[in-house]
């Protein structure tokens, strides 16, 4: 029955569509980038960091006529993401960004079928030995370290709380760096962690933050899109400071956010676009770091950071940049 049901719709739509023709194709030939990402473009975290970078590069290059962007968000399901990646590639996009570590196997498989398309994927460092795959990642432990130093300088209760969904990827490395940063200032400070097991359960994340606060924490940090719940909790309790990662989270609680480690992919993107115009379609890995501008520590201008803390933060940044400070991810 369903076959017939569907064919009626198919027929109706086909008839409607026929006189108008298919989707229109732009006349000029802009550089076309498609991006597939697991969460929303507006998550104030991982996905938005890349999407904002794309928009920034687009603006710099001269808008839609120079750089065309297509996106698919909310692609938590890997097979759907794989279908999207394949489809964008077959539509002739110059570059397809698979913005999620979990898409790796799919990229490896699809990239072989579209040797003229650039595939960029992250966060990882593996290009599978393919000439048309770029890999990008962020050394999240570096900004974590700086945030940790700042946090250690600011905590009075000597208890710092960390919230996150699950202990993986850059959440893991960020927090590892953070703990090392804290310990470098005062090994006596306790860093306690909670993992809620869900990327989307904001309410539980908020409660985790409240639990940290009840246990005496006066500084909080965390990663992933669900941390906004924690920020809300910090805000409600007041006087609890927040350190962000992945994206500049100052706007969420201007009075509480001290600093954020921001992923800035614009450099990576421009590099890849430049390379592709020179005919190099991949085979390289990029690691966003404090040294190459891929990572930035964004101090919240609205927060009155004590001078000595700021100095310690800047010193940590310099130390990492010069290689004097070594951090294990």
């Amino acid at each position: 029955m369903s076959i017939r049901r569907f064919s009626i719709v198919a027929l109706a739509v086909a008839l409607l569509a026929a006189p108008l023709g298919g989707p229109t194709v732009a006349a000029a030939a802009p550089f076309r980038i498609a991006i597939v990402m697991p969460s929303a473009t507006t998550d104030m975290a991982f996905s938005q960091s890349m999407f904002s970078a794309l928009k920034a590069v687009q603006k710099e290059m001269g808008g839609e006529t120079a750089l065309q962007i297509a996106y698919s968000e909310g692609m938590f399901k890997v097979p759907d993401a794989a279908a999207a990646i394949r489809d964008y590639a077959s539509q002739g996009f110059n570059m397809v960004i698979a913005h999620g570590s979990q898409y790796g196997s799919s990229v490896e498989e699809i990239a072989k079928d579209f040797p003229k398309t650039i595939f960029a994927w992250g966060t990882d460092v593996n290009t599978f030995g393919l000439p048309n795959v770029y890999a990008y990642t962020a050394a999240a432990e570096q900004g974590g370290y700086v945030n940790g130093v700042l946090a250690a300088k600011l905590t009075k209760s000597k208890v710092i709380g960390v919230t996150g969904p699950v202990e993986i990827g850059d959440a893991k490395t960020y927090i590892s760096g953070f703990a090392q940063g804290v310990a470098s200032v005062d090994p006596g400070i306790r860093v306690s962690k909670t993992w809620t097991g869900s990327f989307s359960n904001v309410a539980l994340m908020a409660e985790a933050a409240k639990t940290h606060i009840a246990a005496g924490a006066d500084v909080l940090t965390g990663s992933s899109q669900a941390v906004v719940g924690s920020i809300g909790a910090a805000k409600e309790k007041g006087k609890v400071l927040w350190f962000g990662t992945q994206y500049d989270q100052s706007s969420l609680a201007p009075e509480l956010v001290v600093a954020s480690q921001q992923y800035d992919w614009t450099g990576v993107l421009k590099e890849m676009i430049k390379n592709s115009k020179a005919g190099k379609l991949g085979g390289e890995k990029y690691v966003a770091q404090l040294t190459n501008g891929g990572l930035k520590i964004v101090y919240n201008p609205g927060f009155a950071l004590p001078k000595d803390a700021r100095a310690a933060g800047d010193k940590a940044i310099k130390g990492i940049q010069s290689g004097a400070i070594k951090i294990t991810p």
């Binding site: 309410a203 906004v228 805000k235």
Partner: peptide, 10 residues
């Protein structure tokens, strides 16, 4: 939580 996000209720 004092905010809204897609699939807030999870």
């Amino acid at each position: 939580v004092n905010l809204f996000q897609e699939n807030l209720t999870a």
